[in-house]
């Protein structure tokens, strides 16, 4: 499998994400600059954490207008996996690939700490290796991670089981303790916590590994299916 890790001016978790992908899955991970216009070569796309464009105007707001985000939208429509971590989640909401918005933490603190997440949905390509209701340890590092959405949107998210993770102890005031959500098709996940920072024993948690493994397995199975169809036709 071939992963693209998008690099905006101001991204700072791109190398960590690429490291985690290579280390956990053994796959290729390429750092792709924000002016790329074609991502059709890649099986999965990661929007990493950081402060794209200095968080000017609103976090993720300027990144939304970069050429690569149009390419991300195209690949997402094809059903490819898109994972937005922290600032990447903010870019996904600003780009309307995911609903809601992320605002200043209600306590005004920049929170950089280990958090416990509750797995709310293990039927997605990102979470299949977790058990439902399982508590996993993934660190956060953000000042603007308070998820907000109107009641209609929240009801829809719940009805469609699109809340992937909630915080066990809410660190930022997110509505309904929401830490990460899926799009309707289930191939786009945005979350504030950093799974790439929980992939080695020395990182104090390895619970992030299973997210990358779930994605890897999903892509492999999807490819095998396409291959089987192809050979049946020939």
């Amino acid at each position: 499998m071939k992963w693209a890790v998008i690099v905006f001016p101001g991204s700072n978790c791109d190398e960590d994400a690429a490291f985690a992908i290579r280390e956990v899955t053994g796959d290729e991970a390429h750092l792709i600059w924000h002016d790329a216009r074609d991502l059709s070569d890649f099986d999965a796309i990661v929007l990493p954490g950081g402060f794209s464009y200095g968080d000017y105007l609103r976090s993720g707001a300027i990144a939304r207008f970069s050429p690569v985000v149009e390419a991300v939208k195209r690949e997402a429509q094809k059903g490819k996996l898109v994972l937005g971590i922290c600032n990447g989640f903010q870019v996904l909401t600003e780009s309307h690939l995911l609903p809601g918005a992320l605002l200043r933490n209600d306590n005004l603190q920049f929170r950089c700490e280990m958090t416990e997440l509750v797995v709310e949905n293990n039927q997605s390509p990102f979470t299949a290796d977790y058990a439902i209701g399982e508590r996993i340890r993934i660190p956060i590092a953000h000042g603007e991670g308070r998820f907000v959405a109107d009641d209609t949107t929240l009801a829809k998210l719940q009805a469609d089981r699109r809340v992937a993770f909630t915080y066990h102890a809410n660190p930022n005031g997110s509505v309904q303790n929401i830490a990460g959500i899926l799009n309707l098709q289930g191939n786009v996940l945005g979350l504030m916590p950093h799974p790439e920072r929980a992939v080695m024993e020395w990182m104090d948690s390895v619970d992030g590994r299973r997210m990358f493994l779930s994605m890897h397995r999903y892509m492999k199975e999807a490819r095998a299916l396409v291959g089987a169809n192809g050979s049946a036709n020939s």
Binding site: V148, A149, D150
Partner: peptide
């Protein structure tokens, strides 16, 4: 489209 985010 740009200056505000109508979501919030």
């Amino acid at each position: 489209r740009v200056l505000s985010n109508p979501v919030m």
